[in-house]
Design a protein around this nucleic acid. Structure first.
Lengths: 127, 127
DNA sequence: CTTGACCTTCCAGTAACTGGAAACACTAGC
DNA sequence: GCTAGTGTTTCCAGTTACTGGAAGGTCAAG
């Protein structure tokens, strides 16, 4: 499979697949005589794996770790769980920050009349 | 005031203040004979304004808009409100995405025994 | 007069791509 | 066999909002 079909199969843009190859995350296992990257089933599965992990918000480096655990048949589930749990804690942290932000900003927007006059509690608060 | 004191007063790293000057967000109103940036009260107020707006998650470009509204004595509060409301909607959107992510991932972490065995629902789900 | 803190500019790197240019490869139709 | 169109290659640059570091100039204190 050429890169275009592989990308389609994995649900990724071609550019991204090439990028993943460049950074050594998922390399094409082979090249055609003309130099075209050729992807097999296993490589496409890895690409799809990375796409899903990225959808879950895992960073590229986390994906690299997960991928090596994924490929290592003797890995323990504890390792994977640790990565996921850390990531989950980060998400919860971000959620808290976002909630605080939201409440403050919502207050300001509510307090702002939003008319033609220059009185604006939002600017007052910022300035 | 030199850049160090201005940065301290505004609660920003020196590098960031210099960066804001470079991109024309908040320029130093003057330079010393030796070429040192000199900040006055007004400039420091603008720097602090930007810091707070950034804390609220406004992008640099949004800060630029807010700043020009902030400086424009004839501006209407509606303009400011519109920017803030748009930003609020983005925050809410991100909150929803994060919540969905959180629930899915929390499920997986919960389902994973996290022991020495290779059975791992997290990897199963990703792979 | 020297030391140390502060300032300057410029260059490079971060995360994770994305866009574009120039050139080569492949396929279909005529 | 030729041509058009699409797919592929590499490389370079840009994105966001800084951050780190190097090389060198400035200033105040002792």
């Amino acid at each position: 499979m050429n890169i275009g079909d592989a990308a389609k199969a994995a649900g990724l843009p071609v550019k991204t697949v090439r990028y993943y190859a460049d950074i050594g995350l998922v390399r094409a296992p082979d090249r055609s005589p003309a130099g075209y990257r050729r992807y097999d089933e296993a490589a496409i599965r890895k690409l799809a794996f990375v796409r899903r992990a990225r959808d879950f918000g895992f960073s590229i480096e986390e994906c690299r770790e997960l991928l090596s655990l994924y490929e290592d048949r003797s890995r323990s589930s504890a390792d994977v769980r640790a990565i996921a749990a850390t990531h989950l804690a980060e998400i919860e942290d971000k959620q808290r920050q976002l909630a605080a932000l939201h409440d403050e900003l919502a207050h300001l927007v509510e307090a702002c009349r939003g008319d033609d006059r220059p009185d604006c509690p939002i600017l007052d608060r910022l300035g």
